Amino acid sequence: MSSARPLSLITGASAGIGAAFARALAARGHDLVLTARRTERLEALAADMRQQHGSTVTVLTADLADPAATATLCDELARRGLAVDWLINNAGYGVPGTFVANAWQTHADSLQVLLTAPTELAWRLLPDMRQRGYGRIINVASLAGHVPGTAGHTLYAATKSYLIKFSQSLALENRDRDVHVCALCPGFTRSEFHDVTGTRALMDKLPGFMWQSAEDVVREGIDAVERGEAVLVTGRVNRFIKGLFKLMPDRLALRLSARQARRYRQQE
């Protein structure tokens, strides 16, 4: 490990799963680099982590939809002499509505944040992890990456499926260097995610047992990457859903997925 206190870089750290990762890793003795678009929220979280856990916290505001943001972020880390031990690729959001109902720039921004930025961050930070002989990368994917795609969810599930396969390959490539890579696949998680996409009213129709807290998701994710698991679906209900769809014929799985999605997805 590069220092007595590991350094964790967390994207999308201003709320939800990202903020929960910051709290959990600070409690484990990590120093933090927090990045997201909302500086005020990042600074408030940083102040809490300094006070509660004595963490050294660096706030680097960035919009990962900007194609130059990832390189700029890594250049700033290098300028400050910060070597990242844990990379938490968490930043992301959903684009509600059908594919053609949204402008191309909306989709391009989404792909940049959900697919290109985490891939590039891993590419830029992984060589130093390998050289030091220690690293942890958690790519926050989704249960959506394991089940059939649905109308009104066109790019989100596709990018999460990519993150799962990407994580599996990275895990195999780096296991001999004590660099663990895990795709963390939560289902419905209590956070601001559905407020941002405007689907909160639809999501509130889901039964309570379908939901997990961000803290539970993060705890499972940290344990999984430490064990060297390449993919983890969080929660018993989500693992049951994944297993059920895996056993179904593709045609039946797609039909069932489409029927359920009409109840909970904004499709126009």
Results as ranks from 00 to 15, higher is better:
1 M>T: 07
8 S>F: 01
10 I>Y: 01
14 S>M: 13
15 A>I: 03
17 I>Y: 06
17 I>Q: 08
19 A>T: 03
24 A>E: 13
32 L>S: 08
33 V>Y: 09
34 L>D: 08
36 A>L: 14
37 R>K: 05
39 T>W: 03
42 L>Q: 04
43 E>F: 09
45 L>M: 11
45 L>W: 05
53 H>T: 01
54 G>Y: 05
56 T>F: 11
57 V>A: 04
61 T>M: 05
62 A>P: 03
65 A>K: 05
65 A>V: 00
77 L>M: 12
83 A>C: 13
85 D>G: 14
94 G>Y: 10
103 A>G: 11
110 S>G: 14
115 L>D: 03
130 R>F: 02
141 A>M: 04
143 L>A: 05
146 H>Y: 08
148 P>H: 10
152 G>C: 12
157 A>L: 06
158 A>C: 06
158 A>I: 02
168 Q>R: 15
172 L>Y: 02
175 R>A: 12
177 R>Q: 15
182 C>P: 13
195 D>Q: 15
198 G>A: 03
201 A>Q: 11
201 A>K: 11
205 K>V: 00
207 P>M: 04
211 W>S: 00
213 S>I: 03
214 A>P: 02
215 E>M: 00
217 V>M: 01
226 E>G: 00
228 G>V: 02
235 G>A: 08
245 F>T: 04
245 F>M: 05
253 A>Q: 12
258 A>R: 09
258 A>W: 09
262 R>S: 08
